[in-house]
Amino acid sequence: MEDPLDCALDLLRRLPPSKMQHNLSKLVQISPDLSEDLLSSVDHQLSSLTCELTGKPFLICDYNRDGESPWSGEFQPKTDGVKPSPALAQLEQAANDAFDTYRELYFGGGLSSVYLWDLDEGFAGAILIQKSTISIDIENTEGTNTGSWDSIHVVQVTPAKKSAVYKITSTVILQLITPPTADAPEIDLGGSLTRQAEMEYPLDNPMSHVHNMGRLVEDMEIKMRSSIQEIYFGKTKDILNDLRSLTDLKTVRNQASLHAQMIGRLQERNKN
């Protein structure tokens, strides 16, 4: 592995995901040349700003580094950032409203923001959703359980005659922290998963992009929600069982050896 960017990305899939921001800043410190590439190719937990004009909160990320408020279309602080073309700005507005509804239906809270930008052919967009929870366990006075979900979908849209091709890269960052109690251990379970897909959907009119992107994101999130269940809990449990068995291995070994002996004797008898 000679390419420095590959080295950096390899490190980031090994170092503790709970310290993602910190690790990223240390990598940029080691090799400042990579900073642009790393910041644009590595997803981390989203932060939010409040729209100065409407008072509504919105999510910011590297795809919206100029701080455009999706609610007012203005930049915060005021800069001459690149704004989407009028047609795309209209689509952006509609997508923000649609994903706000989607988020409320599936997450029952949290925040969502959509940013679109023009490409030479078609356009691209980032669809961001975040929700965090803090639940206070009355049994546990030492701390609170915290959880956070960040989903970052980057879509590239290439329209054809009566359809459009949507390429999506989706990352979900999920962190769960449970402080220790008298009986239970401290648990810090977290990280990120990334999946890609490509779909072609019919396009009746330009606003159909909202429906198509919604359908694609919904499908990705349903699949990834189930992968999370499988990996965070199922796989982790399997690996732990591989480290330490819940049952006495001696019994298992004895049974295996007894089984082997029986088969051996049966074979002997068959020979005779």
């Binding site: 170092l15 709970s18 810090d188 379970l189 990120s192 998963l193 982790t236």
Partner: peptide, 8 residues
């Protein structure tokens, strides 16, 4: 395709 860690 990710980085998931459990620390307990």
């Amino acid at each position: 395709d990710g980085n998931v860690q459990l620390n307990s």
